[in-house]
């Protein structure tokens, strides 16, 4: 069965062209021209992935993203006009997994969609990992802190698992980009930083003084097995 992709984009030409490209790749595309109809489609049709434009006529893309995250952990890619603006960080903070700068090459979008969906489908190997008071049960992707279940997005989970599988080993941002997002060296390291920040907010007792995911200055991040 074809995977469903929600595409929220107000410019008709861009939306249709993108939809045609995705449909040609075998995906079923749900098109929405504004945020509210996008959210409605999300509830009615349960897509597997969402692509959101930041600039929308009613609710902006960030808000749509936050709304989606309240009830769903599906992968989200957002489209932004410029790479240098704070848009990228704001977009990632509101829960997106990846972003693309407009105008994007259709092939690039397809590659991102494919990579994200593949990672989300892959069944994690059943390993049980304990990091301080955080317990990862890859079976079913459950993470518990002090016994209480924490809900993570798939990207957050993959990031945590990548670090946790080799406790105390330092991973550079580039390595994490490659392992978690499938990028090469040229990926945007802000993806890693923002996701680490989001992950800490959910699993650290005090996100300002992290003990589970530790920053190694100048090198990257590591999962600490020390309590």
């Amino acid at each position: 069965m074809a995977e469903r992709i929600l595409l929220v984009e107000d410019d008709r030409r861009v939306r249709r062209a993108t939809a045609l490209t995705l449909a040609d790749e075998g995906y079923e595309v749900l098109e929405a021209e504004d945020g509210s109809s996008g959210l409605r489609l999300l509830a009615e049709r349960r897509p597997e992935l969402a692509i959101l434009d930041v600039m929308l006529p009613d609710i902006d893309g960030f808000e749509v993203c936050r709304e989606i995250r309240k009830r769903n952990d599906l992968p989200i890619i957002f489209l932004t006009a410029k790479t240098d603006t704070v848009d990228v960080v704001v977009g990632l903070e509101s829960g997106a997994d990846d972003y693309l700068t407009k105008p994007f090459a259709p092939k690039e979008l397809v590659a991102r969609v494919r990579a994200l969906l593949r990672r989300f489908r892959s069944e994690p190997r059943p390993v049980r990992i304990q990091l301080g008071d955080v317990e990862i049960d890859p079976e079913g992707g459950a993470v518990r802190k002090n016994g209480r279940q924490v809900s993570l997005t798939k990207t957050e989970f993959n990031l945590l698992r990548c670090l946790a599988e080799r406790p105390n080993q330092v991973f550079s941002r580039e390595t994490l980009l490659e392992r978690v997002w499938g990028y090469d060296y040229l990926g945007d390291s802000r993806l890693v930083d923002v996701h680490v920040r989001r992950l800490r907010a959910k699993i650290e007792t005090d996100a300002a003084n992290p003990t589970v995911i530790v920053t190694v200055r100048g090198l990257g991040y590591k999962a600490s097995s020390e309590p």
């Binding site: 062209a17 045609l20 490209t21 105008p103 090459a105």
Partner: peptide, 8 residues
């Protein structure tokens, strides 16, 4: 924008 759509 139109060029982006055209390219797709």
């Amino acid at each position: 924008t139109p060029l982006s759509a055209l390219q797709s």
